[in-house]
Design a protein around this nucleic acid. Structure first.
Length: 545
RNA sequence: UGGGGAUUGGUGUAAUGGCAACACGCCUGACUCUGGAUCAGGUAAUCGGGGUUCGACUCCCUGAUCCCCAGCCA
């Protein structure tokens, strides 16, 4: 762009984001969006949103709506520059007539199969269609017939007359139009012929005065054709296509086709399932636009195919939420604790910091009583040396509350620990010992009497393997799904303030992870989705053994 | 046995003829009322082989590997 502006090739920058409305946007699109919008902004230019709606069979307005919503959610705005390729159908038709008159386009009646045969292979030249040398008049008449609906689907196509022996397959007389008697979400039943991508795209760019048309690597072979059409039409200041590598993430799949398959086979719950990388899924998972944008910026842009580690996405959301998410206490796997020296029937409220990263976020009251819940894995009857948490005879701190010491372990007939009897030190109220003594661990807790019941959905990576589309999983990539990608906990105990949260709100469950309230929540039955766990060096140590 | 594109630490990107840098991860240590966060330090790379040059990730030659193209999808 620097060079183009400097040389005077263009005097401004105009980019476009051209989604096809046949699926939901995913995080890969965010890279394209951020690139096109970001670059234009950087160069003082503008970006158009243009729906590439040339295939009525797969496209729908519901997708148009979701795409617009997602782009806005991400914080990008196309202003009044909303376009549809279908707005240009008439113009495209006229241009096609122009090419016919020029003798570089013809109507072909080969069947789909024949076209494939005539095209040759990557290593052998194709051969010319028998319809290739028709007169301009005949082509004009035939094309008119196509438009009038005198041909059924598949009976005729308009093709560019280029070179059937071209080493670039895209240049072997590519199709410009096919007959499709189908209802279009935008143009209704006005048309029964629809332009192909290569014919519609570059010309739409030209019509809109796009200067830099950014697309992904698989269109590199189309670039020659992109330029050919523009040259034939003698567009004065033709746009320029530049390719970049699409974003790929490990432990997931990104293609709309694969995502659709997961949805249709009910392996995930729709386009906004928190396990898939659609923007609506990430949103429900608790990812913020800021984090997603920080992520795509960090990942960068190049022409090398690469796969980004999911850890980098997790880093981005942790960074955002660590700073912005209020802290709350929730016990995911409750173990009952009785404070035996705490008066029966008594309770009190203690001050808890809302967000240590933002002191101005203040404090809240958290109730404390005789009967408490702590996390089951915060207690070990026979702890290994590096385990700092609660154990028989050991003293730990209940965060913002008191030091407690475990006196007695109660078990059931099978020997499972069912509850603990502890004593607290009233002098440590608030969490500090006046005598200066230290404890090695601080646990989160919830008062049994005041607890709200929560449903918690712990999400994990969708696939158990880095690359489910690797050769070894070829035809059974679904076998590579992670069976534990969703764990539903229904007996979670949360502090009372959690009842006041709204769907979409995020918080950190202290020492556990970041959670986002799900829209499935109802009054008295809050549901929380795990966005991402906290880094857990204890878990890491355990893994290493 | 065609054409196009690519190759820098474990991962993703910089450096485009002049000290291979940044981020994530990982490893140490410090600090800590989250085994979180933070802070300090560390680990680790130019696909191979030739050549040009005072000097090469960068230019040239050669080889290897990977990706894309044979939809009336985009």
């Amino acid at each position: 762009m620097d060079a183009d502006l400097a040389s005077g090739k263009y005097d401004k920058v105009v980019t476009r984001f051209p989604p096809e409305p046949n699926g939901y946007l995913h995080i890969g699109h965010t890279k394209a969006i951020a690139l096109s919008f970001g670059l234009a902004e950087e160069y003082g230019g503008v970006t158009h949103l243009r729906f590439d709606d040339t295939n009525p069979l797969t496209e729908d307005t519901s997708y148009v709506d979701s795409i617009k919503e997602d782009i806005h959610w991400m914080g990008f705005d196309w202003g009044d520059r909303l376009h549809y390729a279908s707005d240009y159908f008439e113009r495209l038709y006229d241009w096609a007539v122009k090419l016919i008159r020029k003798g570089v386009a013809y109507v072909c009646h080969l069947t789909e199969e024949e076209i494939r045969e005539y095209r040759g292979t990557v290593k052998e030249a194709g051969k010319p269609s028998p319809y290739r040398e028709r007169s301009v008049e005949e082509n004009l008449a035939e094309f008119e017939k196509m438009r009038r609906g005198e041909y059924k689907d598949g009976e005729a196509t308009l093709r560019a007359k280029i070179d059937m022996a071209n080493p670039n397959m895209k240049m072997r007389d590519p199709l410009m139009y096919r007959v499709r008697h189908a209802h279009h979400h935008n143009t209704g039943d006005k048309w029964c012929i629809y332009p192909m991508y290569d014919w519609a795209h570059g010309q739409s760019d030209a019509i809109e005065g796009i200067t830099h048309s950014l697309c992904t690597l698989e269109f590199e072979n189309n670039n020659e054709l992109y330029r050919w059409f523009l040259e034939q039409l003698e567009v004065p200041t033709p746009p320029e296509q530049t390719e970049f590598a699409r974003l790929a993430l490990n432990y997931t799949v990104m293609s709309k086709r694969k995502l659709l398959e997961l949805i249709e086979k009910k392996l995930v719950n729709g386009w906004n399932d928190p396990r898939i990388p659609t923007l609506s899924g990430l949103r429900r998972r608790g990812y913020t636009p800021a984090a997603i944008r920080a992520f795509v910026e960090r990942v960068g842009v190049s022409k090398a195919n690469s796969v980004v580690d999911l850890g980098m996405l997790e880093w981005a959301i942790r960074e955002d939420l660590n700073y912005n998410a209020p802290r709350r206490m929730a016990v995911l796997d409750p173990l009952k604790v009785t404070i035996t020296n705490y008066p029966e029937g008594q309770s009190e409220e203690l001050d808890a910091v809302n967000n240590p990263e933002q002191p101005e976020a203040g404090t809240r009251k958290v109730p404390f009583g005789r009967t408490m819940f702590i996390e089951r894995d915060d207690f070990m009857e026979d702890p290994p040396r590096k385990f700092f948490r609660l154990a028989p005879g050991r003293e730990v701190r209940l965060r913002y509350a008191y030091f407690i010491t475990c006196d007695e372990v109660v078990k059931d007939a099978e020997g499972n620990v069912t509850e603990l009897n502890c004593t607290y030190d009233p002098a440590t109220r608030g969490g500090d010992a006046p005598d200066g003594r230290k404890v090695k661990a601080t646990l989160h807790w919830v008062s049994a009497e005041h607890a709200v019941n929560l449903e918690v959905r712990n999400y994990d990576r969708l696939f158990a393997v880095e690359n489910p589309l690797a050769q070894k999983y070829k035809d059974n990539w679904l076998q590579a799904l992670n069976p534990d990608s969703l764990e539903v906990l229904t007996h979670v105990k949360g502090e009372p303030s959690l009842a006041e949260m709204q769907p979409g709100d995020s918080c950190q469950f202290e020492r556990k992870g970041y959670y986002c309230m799900d829209p499935d929540s109802s009054d008295g039955a809050p549901v929380f989705n795990r966005t991402v766990t906290l880094r857990d060096s204890w878990a890491k140590m355990q893994k290493k053994g």
